[in-house]
Amino acid sequence: MKVLLRNCHKALLTASLMLAAVQASANGAIGEHVNHLQDNLGEYTEEVNWVIGKIDTMVDTYEAKGAKAAESAQVIEIWEAVDFHAAIETNYVPVYASIWQGLYGVKEAIDAEKPVEDVWAEQEKLEQSLWQALGAVKLAAQYQQRGLLDEIKTTAGPTTPIATLDEVKQRLDRVVAKYAEQLSEEATSIVHDTYLNLFEGVEGALIEQDAKLVEELEKDFNVTLPKAISGKGSVDDVRGVVSDMQAKLDRAKELLKKAESERKDVF
């Protein structure tokens, strides 16, 4: 399959525009390599090429010998075998979600025994996501070298309402990622946990600023998003709900920033 180099530059540019705002805190087991991205860029690049090669072989096998011989279930093992997996998960969750979406796109097209042109189309989307992800990690490595990224931590919590809302937005990206990984229960659990442990702590202050906005977000957290997940719609459907919530959270951030600037001093 043909690697889409022409998309790489575009992906890097897109990533550069978005990366400054994203610094995910990881949970679960991640390697220390994520705090030394620059040293591992060579390995990550090899891994991306390896993943693309393995998927390409799988699709060629499908074209030549059919779905059973292609062993489509291996797409997950292939992706989970590489360290690059954690590098992108901890640095840019939206693309991480797209990779999972691409992996399942290939797998499901093969399982459904679709024409090989359809499988290629899914493969192309996956490759775009992988190159975009590598671009994002390279940029993150530059930021990390300049000391602009915090060390990836597993326990630190946000200390201000604005930081809390940023964390909420990042966790919503993880909801999409987990849904794309077809881990619906985990995605739902992140929604509930994010609501109870993060959003709930700032919504009291927010409701003083815009009661209607809180009402909408309450519904999004407790009805709309869980329903979108349990309804087994497409990843794009869930991403749509999350994007809408993130736009509302940006409005919330502006409101709280303004309120905080007007707040009286303690002493």
Partner: peptide, 18 residues
Amino acid sequence: GRGEGGLYENVLQAIQKR
């Protein structure tokens, strides 16, 4: 223990500043 959406933090910062 995490509390009132940043207001405890404001109190602590004010005590430090003073």
